[in-house]
Amino acid sequence: MASTRARIAVDAMGGDFAPNQIIAGAIRASAELDVDVLLVGDSQQIESYLQHHHHPSNVEIVHADGVVTMDEEPLTAIRRKPNASINVAMDLVKDKRADAVVSAGHSGAAMASALLRLGRLKGIDRPAIGAVFPTILAGKSVIVLDVGANVDSRPKYLEQFALMGTIYSKYVMAVEDPKVGLLNIGEESSKGNDLALRTYQLLEANEKIPFIGNAEGRDVLSGRFDVIVCDGFVGNVLLKFAEAVGEVMLQIIKEELPQGIRGQLGTALLKPNLKRLKQRIDHAEHGGALLFGVGGVCIISHGSSQAPSIFNAIRQAKDAIDNQVLERIQAYNEEHQQETQTNTETVNQ
C-alpha cells in the first residue's frame, strides 16, 4: 500500500459531542496520521477550542454557517442550508481541496449532500453504507452493506454492493480471497423472499464476485464470510442490534467484576484482556461506515462519536484513499461495461 499525504475535511459541527470531541479526534489524527485536516464549521467555536489546546500547523479552519440537525428532513435541509457544515465539507471534495469527508452528523444529510455534490460513480445505481463488524476470529472482520442507505433495494443494487464490498475487503482489509455471502433466513438457495431469490441468482452468475452462498444471522460474526450484502432496512437493524450487544457486554463485564481491593487487583490483572475485548466489540474502534458508490470518499460516523472514534474514522478515510477504492470500483465498472458491449455486439453479428 502506497501511502500519500491526504487532506481530510471533517464536519466539526456534526454529532452529539460536537465540536469539542470532533476537534480533539481531528487534532490527534493530524499528529499521528499522514494527513492535513480541514475543520469545517463555526470558525469562532473552533478557534475558541484551539486557543485552549494545541493548534497544529496542519489543521485548517474552513468556516460554515449552520448545521443540519438530527430532527430535520435531510434533503430539504441540505437544499435550504447550502452553507451548512456538511455541504461545505462536500464542496471541498468536489473542488479537489480535500480528498475525503468525515461526519458524525445527520447520516441522511451526509448521504444526500454526497449524492447532490459528488454524484454517483459511473455504473453504480445506488450508494451503500458499509460497516465493519468484528467476528469471533481474532483479527478478522466482516464488512456488511448496505446498513442504511436504501430501505428498499433491487437485486441489481445488491449485486453492485457485493462488488464494492469485495474490492474494499481485498484492498483495504487485506483479504486475499474475500468470501461473499447474502444475508438470508436459511442457507439453501431456495430460501428467502423474492429479493433474496433473485439476488442469489445474480451473485452466483457473476464471475467477478466470490459468492459462496447465503449467510444466516448467526453467520454474520462467525468469520466464515468477509463480505455480507443485504438491503438497507435489514442492514440498519443488524447494525443497531450489534452496537447494542457490544455496549451490553461491556456493561455486564463492568458490573460482574468484584468490588473493593479484590476487584481492583482483578481488574489490574485483566486490564490488557479487557482492552483487547473493547477494541474488538466497540463500534468506536472502527470509526465509521464508508459511503460506497459516490464520487468521493465519505465516512459516516456514529452520532455519539467522541474523539477516539473520529480519529479512527479519519484513519479509515486515509486507508480508502491510499488503496484507491474509488478508482478500483470505477475501473471494474468500465471493464464490465466494455465486456457487456462486446458480448452484445457478438450476439448481434
Score class of each variant (00 low, 15 high):
146 D>L: 02
200 Y>M: 05
181 G>N: 10
228 I>G: 09
177 D>A: 15
167 I>Q: 07
169 S>Q: 04
225 F>S: 13
192 G>Y: 06
205 A>D: 09
181 G>A: 08
138 A>I: 15
198 R>C: 00
149 A>C: 01
144 V>S: 03
161 F>M: 09
226 D>C: 03
144 V>E: 04
213 G>E: 02
160 Q>E: 07
168 Y>Q: 11
220 V>K: 10
133 F>D: 09
202 L>H: 06
205 A>I: 06
151 V>H: 02
197 L>P: 07
227 V>Y: 09
175 V>E: 07
178 P>V: 04
222 S>W: 07
198 R>N: 08
154 R>E: 10
213 G>V: 13
175 V>Q: 13
218 R>L: 15
160 Q>A: 05
198 R>V: 09
222 S>Q: 12
166 T>I: 02
207 E>S: 15
152 D>I: 03
211 F>K: 05
187 E>G: 15
195 L>C: 01
229 V>R: 00
179 K>P: 08
148 G>N: 04
225 F>E: 11
185 I>T: 06
158 L>S: 07
184 N>M: 12
142 V>D: 11
232 G>A: 07
210 P>V: 05
217 G>V: 15
208 K>W: 02
161 F>T: 02
163 L>D: 10
194 D>A: 08
201 Q>Y: 06
182 L>V: 13
202 L>C: 02
158 L>P: 02
190 S>A: 13
148 G>H: 11
